[in-house]
């Protein structure tokens, strides 16, 4: 849309700048705080410009963690988070592709019911069903394990729905042509449907990875063993210290590190991600 209204330009730029400021300022303050020594943050006035302790703080965090504050090394927590996020993202994508494939391409009794059952689970996020889920996971002895962290979060109505919608836009004749070409259902899935869903999978992976990375409540419940703490839980643990001031400079450094992987995923997959959101290659 091309409009020639200068005041509108000014207004929209103002709104955009304000938005950027609101989003970016907290991140900036986090970064700044992670570069100062502990005492300069306790003075009551938050510094707005980076200090001189950048390498020192990050080295401390990565190396020893907050042993003093009763926490595990950040490296280990990031590793845990990474495993969990990857398991959730990959698991969700695999499960929902299979589910959507079944619902779209096969005729079986109660097909619609199955779809709606899956769809209805959208109304039951983890927070709602957390007690029974915890009970199941506990009796399966999956507490304090990567499976326990990821499996209950893997079922995904949203992703199933997205893939179903995408599969419905793939022309029926493609499936028929593949049938005539001698491709069975699985071959059709792997040779034709998956390559066509490439961009959708990438977009979904980004979203789901961040979703998994940011999980808080569930990891908090199922991990009691420190070696399975995820970074988001770890940050919270760092805050909850008895009889001492929280080590804000180190917490902020940890937070910066925690933000890194999702940002990297977004940057690396940006092209595919945007393609998957705006267009469908056919």
């Amino acid at each position: 849309m091309i409009e020639r209204r200068p005041w509108l330009n000014v207004l929209s730029h103002f709104v955009l700048c304000a938005g950027v400021l609101v989003t970016a300022l907290p991140i900036w303050i986090t970064f700044v705080a992670s570069t100062h020594p502990a005492d300069s943050l306790m003075s009551g006035r938050a510094p707005l410009w980076p200090g001189a302790h950048l390498f020192e703080n990050y080295a401390t965090v990565l190396d020893s963690g907050l042993r003093a504050a009763g926490s595990v090394p950040v490296g280990m927590m990031m590793w845990n988070s990474l495993i969990m996020a990857l398991m959730i993202a990959v698991g969700k994508i695999v499960i929902s592709i299979i589910a959507a494939f079944g619902i779209v391409y096969f005729r079986f009794p109660l097909r619609r019911t199955c779809f709606w059952l899956i769809f209805v689970t959208l109304m039951l996020p983890v927070e709602v069903r957390i007690l029974p889920t915890f009970g199941v996971v506990a009796s399966l002895e999956m507490l304090n394990s990567y499976w326990g962290l990821s499996v209950p979060l893997i079922a995904s109505a949203t992703a199933t729905f997205l893939f179903r919608q995408f599969f419905l836009t793939v022309p029926e004749e493609l499936a028929e042509a593949a049938r005539i070409d001698g491709a069975g259902p699985l071959k059709f899935l792997f040779d034709i449907l998956l390559p066509l869903s490439r961009t959708n999978i990438a977009a979904l992976f980004v979203i789901l990875f961040i979703f998994g990375w940011n999980q808080y409540l569930w990891p908090l419940l199922v991990t009691t063993d420190e070696s399975f703490y995820t970074i988001v839980v770890g940050i919270q643990r760092m805050l909850a210290v008895d009889d001492a001031e929280p080590a804000w400079h180190l917490i902020m450094a940890t937070t910066m590190l925690a933000m890194l992987p999702p940002v990297l995923v977004v940057i690396c997959m940006q092209r595919l991600f945007i393609k998957g959101l705006i267009e469908q290659e056919k």
């Binding site: 004749e173 042509a177 005539i180 070409d181 491709a183 040779d191 066509l196």
Partner: peptide
Amino acid sequence: IAMVFQNYALYPHMSVFDNMAYGLRN
């Protein structure tokens, strides 16, 4: 049998060669 569809139903992600070869490979 071999069928030619109204909208051609070519596999969009495959080259022309692969489109023609797919059935034979299977």
